[in-house]
Amino acid sequence: MEESLTDLKLINEALEKKFAQTQAKAMNPLALAYIGDGIFSDTVRKYLIGCGQQNVNLMTKASISYVRASAQAQIIHALIPELTEDELRIVKRGRNVHSQVPKNASAADYCYATGFEALLGYLHLSGEPQRLEDLMVKSIAIINQLKP
C-alpha cells in the first residue's frame, strides 16, 4: 500500500504540532484527559519494565493499581498543595466535566482522576516535559507508599 507524500507530511505535522499554553488551556478537558491517560499509562508501563518485571500478566495487574480511578484520585489529592494556580484550574476543569462514570469507579474518584489526567495532558501539550515528568514520578511514588 503506497502512501502519498502529502499524507505522510500531514501525519507528521499533526504528530509534531506544538500548542501554546493558552491553546492547551482552552482545550476540552476530556481531550486533555484522553492524552493524559495514555501518557500516564505508558509511564507506568515503562516503570514496571524498568523495575525488572517481565511477566505481562503481572505487569497488567500491577499497572491497574496505578491507573485506576481511585489511585489517580489519591494522587491528585496528594499533589494539589504543590500545584500552580494554572495547574489547579486545569484539574478543576477536568474534575467538573460531565462524562460517563465506569461501573468499577465511584463518581467522585472518577471526577478527580479525570482532573489528574487533564493536568498531565495539559502539561504534555503545552510543552512542559520536566514538570510533567516530575509530577508523574511523584505520582508513582505516592501509589508505592500506599501499597501494603
Score class of each variant (00 low, 15 high):
Tyr110Gly: 03
Ile75Ser: 04
Ala118Pro: 02
Ser65Pro: 00
Ile64Cys: 08
Gly52Cys: 13
Thr84Asn: 03
Thr84Cys: 02
Ala107Asn: 09
Asn57Trp: 10
Leu135His: 04
Lys103Val: 11
His77Met: 09
Tyr66His: 10
Gln130Val: 00
Phe40Thr: 03
Asn104Gln: 11
Gly94Ala: 01
Gln100Phe: 07
Thr43Ile: 02
Glu87Val: 03
Ser41Thr: 15
Leu120Glu: 05
Pro102Trp: 12
Asp109Pro: 01
Gln72Leu: 11
Ile143Ala: 07
Cys51His: 09
Lys92Leu: 14
Lys138Asn: 03
Cys51Asn: 13
Ser126Gly: 07
Leu135Asn: 01
Val101Pro: 00
Arg45Ala: 11
Leu123Trp: 05
Thr84Leu: 08
Arg93Pro: 00
Thr60Val: 15
Lys138Gly: 01
Ile142Phe: 11
Arg93Glu: 11
Leu83Ile: 01
Val91Lys: 06
Phe116Asp: 03
Ile64Val: 15
Leu58Val: 13
Gly50Tyr: 03
Asp42Thr: 11
Ser106Asp: 04
Gln72Ala: 06
Gln100Ile: 09
Gly127Arg: 03
Tyr110Met: 05
Arg95Thr: 11
Arg45His: 08
Val44Ala: 06
Gly38Tyr: 12
Ile64Thr: 14
Lys103Asn: 11
Ile76Glu: 00
Val137Glu: 01
Ser106Tyr: 00
Asn55Cys: 13
Ile142Arg: 09
Pro102Cys: 13
Leu48Arg: 07
Ile64Ser: 13
Ile80Gly: 00
Leu83Glu: 01
Gly127Cys: 06
Ala108Ile: 14
Leu135Ala: 03
Thr84Trp: 02
Met59Asp: 09
Gly127Thr: 05
Ala108Glu: 09
Ala108Gly: 06
Arg95Asp: 11
Ile64Gln: 14
Phe40Arg: 04
Ala107Met: 09
Tyr112Val: 00
Ser63Trp: 04
Arg95Cys: 10
Leu58Ile: 14
Gly38Trp: 10
Ser65Cys: 09
Tyr112Ser: 00
Ala71Tyr: 08
Arg93Ala: 14
Gly115Phe: 01
Leu88Gln: 11
Ala78Tyr: 04
Ser139Phe: 03
Gln145Lys: 15
Ser41Asp: 14
Ser126His: 05
Glu85Cys: 02
Leu146Val: 03
Asn55Leu: 07
Ile39Leu: 14
Ile80Met: 03
Ser139His: 06
Lys46Trp: 04
Tyr66Lys: 07
Gln53Asn: 13
His77Thr: 09
Leu146Ser: 14
Lys46Phe: 08
Leu58His: 12
Lys46Ser: 06
Gly94His: 07
Val101Ala: 10
Asn55Pro: 07
Ser65Arg: 12
Gly127Ile: 05
Leu125Glu: 09
Glu133Ser: 07
Ile49Thr: 10
Ala105Trp: 08
Lys103Leu: 13
Tyr66Gln: 08
Ala107Tyr: 04
Glu87Leu: 03
Glu117Tyr: 06
Pro148Met: 04
Lys147Glu: 13
Ser41Pro: 01
Gly94Lys: 02
Leu135Ser: 02
Leu119Met: 05
Ala118His: 07
Ile90Glu: 06
Thr84Met: 03
Lys103Phe: 07
Ser106Phe: 04
Thr43Gln: 05
Ala141Cys: 09
Gly121Gln: 12
Ser126Asn: 10
Cys111Ala: 15
Gly50Thr: 08
Arg89Tyr: 14
Val91Leu: 04
Met59Tyr: 10
Asp109Gln: 02
Asn144Pro: 10
Pro102Gln: 13
Leu120Val: 12
Glu133Asn: 05
